[in-house]
Structure formats: structure tokens, C-alpha cells
Amino acid sequence: MAHNSHSSHAADHSELGHIIPFAVYRNVLIILLILTIITVAVSRVDFGVLNIVVAMAIASVKAGIVAAYFMHLKYENPIIWIYVLFPIILLFLMMGGIFVDNPTRRDPKIYYEVPAATENQSATNH
């Protein structure tokens, strides 16, 4: 390409994206499908409150594999890692802040039953 020869000879593969062998992609797909079956199988077992933790943990492993290999995150520079981690940290901060609030409210039910309570009160007043 005549008008950007200076960049095209510089643009070899090492400067653009990383090439991953086909076998890796294939194996990753197989692992992901197996993990999907495991997700379903594990949901039949009752871990009590840990049900959601187990499900999310497996999902995170799957998501990590997709990001690392399909999305080439493994070969990206640290700045992209930071901007992948940042929103996840914010998600936990958001959940954390809200879970500091709601479960420590005295009784969530009182917020829903206020109209009934005032009715009783006005009835006794009369």
C-alpha cells in the first residue's frame, strides 16, 4: 500500500493481535459445553444458601475462559485488564452498598404494611 508503507511493514503479527491455534478454540468450546452440563447437574444438588454461590462460581469460570481465549484477554496489555476489572469492582461496590442498607433495616415488612397500621391507629383513635 503505497501511502502507508511505513506502517504496513511495521504491522506484523506481533504488533497486532495474537494468533491462537484452532485446537485451543475447539478445546475451549468443549470445556464450555461440559461446564454448562455441570451447571445444570449441580443445580439438582441442594447446597442450601450456597446454591447461588456455586452456580455463579461455575459461571465465572466459564466467563473467564471465554474472556481469556475467545476474547484474547490473556494476551492483552494490563490497561485492558484494569478496565475489565473496574466495572466488576463497581458491581460489587454497588451491591455491597445496597446490602449494607436493606438487610440492616429493622424489618422490611413495616415498609409495606404502613397503610394497614395507620388504619388501625385511626380506628383506635375514633
Partner: peptide, 26 residues
């Protein structure tokens, strides 16, 4: 130059994905 453009586009897309994650985070 074209190599910078490639990396800029990729960083831009990852940032956009970060905003998408936060959209679902809500």
C-alpha cells in the same frame, strides 16, 4: 498510524464493553 489505530479501536471496544457490564450490573 495503523497499528495505533488498531490498538485504540480495541481499547475503545473494551471500554464500551465495560459500560455494557455496568448496564447489566444494575
Amino acid at each position: 498510524d495503523s497499528v495505533t489505530a488498531y490498538h485504540a479501536a480495541k481499547l475503545g471496544m473494551w471500554l464500551f464493553l465495560a459500560t455494557e457490564i455496568l448496564l447489566f450490573a444494575v
